[in-house]
Simulated scan of single mutants.
Amino acid sequence: MSPSTPPTSPYAAELARIREFFAARAAGWDARFPDDGPRYAAAIAGLGLRAGDSVLDAGCGTGRALPLLRAAVGPEGRVLGADVTPEMLHEADARHPGTGTLLLADCARLPLPDATLDAVFAAGLISHLPDPARTLRELARVSRPGATLTLFHPIGRAALAARHGRELTPGDLRAEPNLRPLLTAAGWRLDSYTDTEDQYLVRAGRR
Rank of each mutant, 00 (worst) to 15 (best):
F152E: 03
I44K: 07
A94D: 02
R32C: 11
R189L: 14
H90Y: 11
A27K: 03
A158S: 14
L149V: 06
A45H: 11
F121A: 00
L183H: 01
P7E: 11
P3A: 13
T169V: 15
P67L: 04
T62R: 00
P154C: 09
P6T: 05
G156F: 10
P170H: 10
S9G: 10
R174Y: 04
L80W: 12
T196C: 05
A27Y: 04
P111G: 09
A186H: 00
G205E: 14
R134Q: 15
R206N: 12
L136T: 00
D57A: 03
L151Q: 08
D36V: 11
T184E: 01
A123V: 00
G146Q: 12
A51N: 12
D57G: 08
A159F: 06
S143A: 15
G28M: 05
D118G: 12
I44W: 09
A119M: 06
A12R: 14
L66V: 05
D30C: 05
F33N: 12
T135P: 06
A159P: 07
A204I: 02
L182I: 07
G171F: 06
G171N: 13
D30L: 07
L182E: 10
A105M: 02
G98W: 09
A108P: 01
G171R: 09
T99F: 09
A147K: 08
H96G: 06
L117Q: 06
H153R: 15
Y200E: 09
R189I: 12
A51T: 14
A31I: 10
A58P: 10
P170L: 05
T150K: 03
R137T: 06
L102N: 05
P34G: 14
T62P: 00
